[in-house]
């Protein structure tokens, strides 16, 4: 005789419920830590029983099965409702990640360089960031001016003017880091001024994407041919707030965790109340 998956499943429920009943009966015969241990074992076994028995709520109501119909329907509705909600949230989250990946990658930087102390002291061969750092400051190159900062559909953009064809170097510091007294590591991003001296820098996940917070920024111009840089511009400030999609994604995690906890607690509570 072959033993089907259904046989194994129903037998495991039988054995687990027998184990719980045995532990409950023995609860009054032990004291102290053993009693506490038994309570923990019962709670653990109840949770396991709830998880194992989930398929019985998913299965159709057995024909002619008359006992506890209302409780069964309530438990089934609750379980299916919560599982369905979890599933929908997972699907939505997956869809958001696949279609709006740009909103998810907050800290991905590809064509920018973060200057760190280690970097400065490492004695690396010259890099673009090193070039800017060691370039001679010269009055021959005027400081750029940031004329507009705007948040457009969740992306922060900067506009301004600089010497024609110069490299415009943005340095951003997070105000909370400055206030904490730690060594502040500015984030450096560059863009190119056009022949008319105008420049733009757009927040883009593939270029730069600042974590949320209040920032102070300044900007300078760099001429790679003459290897000179301008003085820092006036400082400007702006705030980065989390986009709706990021908030939704982060909330989805919290909602999922709360729902998962609810599934266990409701099942546990109902098992205790009904049995």
């Amino acid at each position: 005789m072959s033993i089907s998956l259904r046989d194994r499943w129903s037998t495991s429920i039988l054995h687990l419920s027998a184990y719980i009943a045995g532990k409950k009966n023995g609860l009054l015969t032990v004291h102290g830590m053993r009693s506490l241990l038994n309570v923990l074992l019962i709670v653990g076994a109840e949770i396991l029983l709830l998880l194992i028995s989930l398929p019985s709520y998913v299965a159709a109501q057995p024909v002619g099965d008359t006992a506890g119909t209302n409780e069964y329907r309530l438990r089934r509705a609750l379980t299916l409702g919560i599982i369905g909600t979890l599933f929908i949230i997972w699907i939505l989250k997956l869809a958001l990640i696949l279609t709006l990946a740009g909103f998810v990658n907050n800290n991905r930087l590809t064509s920018s360089t973060t200057v760190t102390e280690t970097y400065n002291q490492s004695g690396n061969t010259e890099t673009f960031a090193d070039d800017i750092l060691i370039a001679r400051e010269s009055a021959e190159l005027a400081s750029p001016t940031v004329t507009k900062i705007q948040n457009i559909r969740g992306r922060i953009a900067f506009w301004g003017t600089a010497p024609a064809n110069s490299t415009v170097v943005f340095a951003f510091t997070l105000n909370s880091e400055t206030a904490s007294g730690k060594t502040v590591t500015p984030k450096i991003y560059t863009t190119q001024a056009g022949a008319d001296g105008r420049f733009e820098l757009w927040e883009d996940a593939s270029i730069f994407n600042l974590p949320k917070g209040a920032y102070t920024g300044s900007v300078s111009a760099y001429d790679p041919v003459r290897e000179i840089k301008s003085a820092q511009s006036h400082t400007f400030s702006f705030s980065v707030t989390e986009s709706f999609w990021n908030t939704l994604l982060h909330s989805a995690d919290t909602i999922l965790n709360i729902l998962a906890l609810l599934v266990i607690l409701i099942g546990l509570l109902m098992t205790i109340l009904v049995t």
Partner: peptide, 24 residues
């Protein structure tokens, strides 16, 4: 009287082609 087990037994017996009624 244990509802979870009662449902499991019902499903097991329904699978064996019996009509199942139950009480708690």
């Amino acid at each position: 009287d244990e509802q979870v087990l009662q449902k499991a037994l019902s499903i097991e017996l329904l699978g064996a082609r019996f009509e199942v009624l139950s009480a708690l």
